[in-house]
Design a binder for these strands. Structure first.
Lengths: 267, 267
DNA sequence: AGGAAATGGTTTGAAGTCAGACCCTTGACG
DNA sequence: CGTCAAGGGTCTGACTTCAAACCATTTCCT
């Protein structure tokens, strides 16, 4: 599988392997359950909050109401939500705080990560590109006062988060907020993907107070640079930030730092 | 869109909108056609090359053979491929170069771009992040001799391309090759997306010889930096390269340079 | 020449998914 | 107190996709 002979423009099987990716990962039902469960775990729907009406939710998730209802039934069976009928009815997040089995939860997360190790490793790589890029663009743009205020306020709520879970939630929100300031919808979406998987990974390991303190310092620097309009600085700090998380995760999840297999069979 | 009041952890509908993404974008058939067509247009399967056997292709694309066959039938009907049976049979790329109606083709492309102006503008933005990032990572990795040779060979075939169409294809291959060297499948996929849309945009405008010469010079510098392992340089040059294309396209396609709407309704 | 192998072509029945219509329950409001 | 609106609950028929088996054609090999 050496390089293509110059000039002949042959079929490049390496490129083909990369471009012809799976067209469709999972079935709709499982993906829906997974996304809803994750959203609840991430606190997008807080405890006691109501999910949007089924019809609406189905439409935003681009899934038939039938499938969505099956997914909700699964969540209900798992005790995550409960539903009530009639006007002002709906599905409410119960999420009786799964305390106690913290370690159990971590074990589950660990198995999840192990199952998708390659994908998650790739997440760390692409994050190194996407998040610094978003920070750069955010710093480059002129921000309204409201945007600046919102950014600062989000930053504050990260550093004042009460516990680990709240911190993780606030952290995700901060990164998404920055991405949003970049003004690129697709970049926001990319960061959302990355943060989702990051969250999965982080719940599989114990996070130390030191790490959080360190991370908070970096957050402040990034926000600072964005507010000052120093794009290069914003990017650099964000890169450092990503590298720190990546190092932490690689170590604790048993991912070698070396680039994924170097032999050509990879691509 | 000010930040959520600290401490109350309410349901954040904004975040919900971002996180509850469509669970499944398109149907398998369309996605398959799209991917194959893209691979052919980008020159991954050169003119006259053979596609992998159906069973194999179906499996790598994670699609049933039925669906794959329907997709191939569509391509065949579009004149992109033709198939032959028997041992050593298979599907071969014909891609009879659509000459003659050059101007007509351009008009079509122009209408296409106008219809999706916002999406295409976003493409230019995200490209500014993704391609430089890929170049950076590629330069950071240790490359095998085969990879180095392949990169140089691809670069050469860009600068020696016979006509505009060939140049465009070779250009796409070069960018994809660089992305591949980054070692991140998802980054490759992102670059492929970007290149496909870029290709659409470029076919909507007349490209001048000057632009091509300029672009070739930049390509050489990027490849140079990657081979030397100078990641920062590789990224910087790639950024310049992206900016040049973006400026050209924004001008000729009538896109203002200003960032997309700044009001908060965006997200 | 004849069989084996590799490839595309076809058929079948099951499972998943969907859109849409309709029903049931309950609270809001006149 | 009755009606309406907003929600969940149910049913149906169609479409998509799948896996697996089998058929047809060509080429390679002995």
């Amino acid at each position: 599988m050496t390089a293509a002979p110059a000039g002949s423009t042959p079929t490049d099987d390496e490129l083909a392997g990369v471009l012809l990716q799976p067209v469709r990962g999972t079935n709709a039902f499982e993906a829906t359950v997974e996304q809803l469960a994750r959203a609840i775990r991430l606190g997008v729907f807080a405890d006691g909050a109501m999910l949007p009406p089924e019809r609406e939710l189905a439409s935003t998730m681009n899934v038939s109401r039938t499938t969505l209802r099956e997914a909700i039934a699964a969540l209900r069976q798992a005790g995550l939500v409960s539903t009530h009928r009639g006007r002002r009815g709906g599905t409410v997040v119960t999420q009786r705080s799964v305390s106690g089995d913290e370690d159990d939860h971590r074990a589950v997360a660990q198995r999840l990560v192990e199952a998708h190790r390659d994908a998650y490793r790739d997440t760390l790589v692409i994050r190194r590109v996407v998040e610094p890029g978003a920070a750069y663009l955010a710093a480059e743009r002129e921000l309204t006062q409201a945007q600046r205020d919102g950014l600062v306020s989000t930053l504050t709520s990260v550093s004042t988060a009460a516990d680990r879970v709240a911190h993780r939630q606030a952290d995700g929100r901060l990164h998404l907020t920055i991405a949003k300031l970049s003004g690129s919808p697709r970049l926001v979406s990319a960061v959302a993907d990355v943060q989702r998987e990051l969250s999965d990974m982080l719940s599989a390991i114990p996070v130390l107070a030191v790490n959080i303190a360190h991370s908070n310092a970096e957050h402040r620097q990034v926000v600072d640079a964005i507010l000052r309009g120093d794009a290069d600085r914003a990017r650099t700090v964000m890169e450092t930030h990503c590298d720190a998380t990546a190092a932490l995760l690689r170590g604790l999840l048993g991912m070698p730092h070396t680039s994924p297999r170097r032999d050509d069979t990879l691509l």
